[in-house]
Write a protein that binds this DNA or RNA. Structure first.
Lengths: 197, 197
DNA sequence: GCCTCCATGTCAGAAACTGACATGACGTTA
DNA sequence: TAACGTCATGTCAGTTTCTGACATGGAGGC
């Protein structure tokens, strides 16, 4: 067996812990340095000090390394929806979720921009991003149903919230300076309501 | 060189024409028979009477065989947007596009259901479908801009039209009997406007 | 009748993924 | 303390997707 990890600290396990995190970091670095297509999984694994096989045990495919745990991310939305006042309308519950996710992204603007640059440069990654958005929309719809909203209002409200967040995020990432994503999203939602008048 | 095509009609070319269409048909059949994952590109090519290499010359990847020419499809929307009365609001222009695409799908319900069954059974295909939807949304936004709509109204209106179409299509495909997709979409758009009140 | 075009075939190969089995530090238990 | 099971990882062989380079031979023009 070759020597996969250089750094060893006394009393550590057989392998350096945090292989998953090292892979994610190595991948983002390499994608920015050489581009997504020019980076092989073997490259990523080598930089992280593991084998290719370990990469595929951590991430189901090459793209997935840029996407954190979706359940955790969606929960920011769904918890906020579930926690909204019982008498709030579906749209107001959704607005609460926009505020919550806005707070969650506070301080992450620099990272979000690095990541967005990689995704924007590659269609395959945009695909995955879109799917995550779809799953998010479905999760929001489910959360709205759980708090008593009716169909099809739940599905459509979820779509509106998803649109507002998506558009707000695009603008947020496009700006050089970090602004309040929650404010932006609520503002987009207002524009949306104006349009549908 | 092996014998790639069985059927030969006098005076035909060196190869049976319509390789692209045969591949699409063979692929849909095989996906329904064995499932997407259990079907290799070699299988599809064999049934269509061509080689694997020809498949990849016709379609950029295995999934693409289930998706027609996107430019042609998007044009149904964008032409209708461009052709709407000059004094129509962006949302009304979008509604006209919903009617147009509804007409385009008339009679295609049986095919749409077969195809939807395959897509629903496979995450990789859902990914591609989502991307097509994103590109459609962008195309609609561009068409609205071209007829004088302002940003961000154009982008947001495009999203609303896209949501209305998507939701209507889901319901349309779910029904056993074919209904008027245009009517459905306009109706969903009405629900959306009611929600945003 | 010759010649160019071009869709297709043929072939070799890179890269993404998967299944099966081996390894060896760690914690547990006797 | 010695045996033992656990489990993340390594190793290896194989399948499948996708690409580049070059060959082939009917069709249509000259």
């Amino acid at each position: 067996m070759s020597d996969p990890v250089i750094t060893r600290i006394g009393g550590m396990g057989r392998w350096e812990p945090g292989a998953r995190e090292r892979l994610a970091e190595a991948a983002l670095e390499l994608f920015l340095e050489r581009g997504y297509d020019a980076t092989t999984v073997a490259d990523i694994a080598a930089r992280a000090g593991v084998t290719e096989r370990t990469f595929f045990r951590q991430y189901s495919d090459k793209r997935e390394v840029l996407f954190g745990d979706p359940a955790e991310y969606n929960a920011v939305f769904t918890d906020a929806v579930a926690g909204a006042p019982a008498d709030a309308s579906p749209l107001d519950a959704g607005a609460a979720a926009l505020r919550a996710v806005g707070a969650w992204f506070a301080g992450r603007h620099p990272y979000a921009r690095r990541r967005a640059a990689v995704v924007a440069a590659n269609p395959a990654l945009q695909e995955r991003e879109q799917v995550k958005r779809l799953h998010l929309t479905e999760a929001i719809a489910a959360a709205l149903l759980a708090r008593g909203a009716a169909q099809p209002a739940a599905a459509l409200t979820a779509e509106l919230i998803s649109v507002a967040f998506h558009q707000a995020f695009v603008r947020w990432v496009a700006a050089d300076e970090e602004s309040d994503l929650g404010d932006l999203a609520i503002s987009v939602l207002g524009e949306l309501r104006g349009l549908a008048r």
